[in-house]
Design a binder for these strands. Structure first.
Lengths: 230, 230
DNA sequence: ATCAATCGTTGATATATATCAATGAATAAG
DNA sequence: CTTATTCATTGATATATATCAACGATTGAT
């Protein structure tokens, strides 16, 4: 997988999310002076639900999962890959994280002081528009998840998760799964055992092949149908 | 229930959501010149998922439900009461509604041209901050729903719905339910029959009394425990 | 007032899904 | 290399929940 080379200056950074294209050089410089880089080993927690939320985080390498810690179980809201950013709703409400984030692969990230970020939103309307647009996109994505998890049964939910992984996360088919079966279950809102059983069922029906952690959607049409019929 | 008297001028309007407090008189005047009032009978659709979304809507009297039309079933995202507003995530993405809205009681609403609204967000940072804050609050609310619907079983979900209705919507206990059992089921993500059965169970256990559509939470502590143990 | 249509309620049954338990496979630590 | 620990898999079972069917109660229309 391509590794983005991180610059020491935001103005020339190649791992910069497109939301920052709306910024002037002065604003980028301001961010540059108020950021630092961190690295996480696979499995390490980046931040924990309920703790203060002083940073905007942009993932530069690796992969992270965002998950709500519920009652014994976790619900994975999304996987984050380079060069996406993480910015929770608590920033404008109570300065707390409303979900946890942890690295599912070895990762590096850029942290930006959240007050700088909010300041630029106030002073640069184009940036504000882009920002509102990006959180709107997340809301729409959440709605789709909502319907999948509350109205489809397990086959349909696993189908949705497989498309999400193939199309949105790994961007390929076949793809190598870097998350655990438990994570797949936490994405689909079911027990790990059930998730495994559905995968097996798809394999038996020739819809999917699985070689270790390399999954291949062999029959996307049929998988799509399963997703739609719920 | 108190009826807000609607003024013919936004600057003096008593049914104005507090988000507009950040606006100058000129900006209020701008909105005033680009709005109109509509009334809906109970059951009427205000707007439909998938259709263009040219207006910001503020409910002035009555009650509405926002719901995603899924696969045969609906999922109610929230109930809206005066003087809350409805502003979907599609406005900044594809100009489409991503959920439907319909009146559950006879209602009136104020519609404001969405471009005026976006224009003021660009020019007034305090208003922008308030707006981002308000959509962040909705996101956090959605997260709670998410956990309730995907990780709790039916008793816990109905308990959550009852607290939502009593505390957030009707603001009283006892309260008169103006939504149908089907709506209650659509809030809790279950079949109508199941919702009714849980209500009956709560009645049999003395947690709840139901006199027609007047519900009374008799034992909030126990209901809270049911909500927490899922 | 009467009829039709919807809404609420209940019971019986089928089904989806979680849980429990056991075992093998992979991985990390000594 | 060996052992301990986690992770993946499978089967058997229990449980939660939906569906189907029937019927009474309410509401709206003629």
């Amino acid at each position: 997988m391509a590794r983005f080379i991180q610059s020491h200056n935001c103005t020339e950074c190649k791992c910069r999310n497109s939301i920052f294209d709306a910024l002037s050089n002065d604003e980028l410089e301001l961010i540059n002076n108020n950021r630092y880089e961190v690295s996480f080993k696979a499995g390490e927690i980046m931040f924990k639900q309920g703790t203060p939320s002083p940073h905007f985080l942009c993932l530069t390498t690796g992969m992270a999962k965002l998950y709500i810690e519920g009652h014994g179980k976790n619900l994975i809201l999304s996987l984050v890959k380079p060069i996406e950013y993480i910015f929770g709703p608590g920033t404008y409400v109570d300065n707390r994280h409303h979900y946890s984030a942890s690295a599912v692969e070895d990762s590096t990230a850029c942290l930006v002081d959240v007050n700088i970020f909010k300041q630029i939103i106030r002073s640069n309307p184009n940036f504000a528009d882009e920002f509102i647009r990006s959180i709107s996109l997340m809301t729409i994505f959440n709605f789709d998840q909502f319907i999948s998890l509350t109205q489809k049964q397990m086959n349909g939910r696993i189908a949705d998760a497989l498309f999400y992984l193939s199309e949105k996360i790994y961007g390929s088919n076949p793809f190598e799964l870097t998350i655990s079966r438990q994570d797949l279950a936490d994405i689909s809102g079911m027990s790990k055992e059930s998730a495994i059983r559905i995968l097996k069922e798809f394999k038996d029906e020739g819809i999917l092949s699985a070689n270790g952690n390399v999954l291949h959607i062999l029959n996307p049409q049929q998988l799509k149908k399963i997703s739609e019929t719920g």
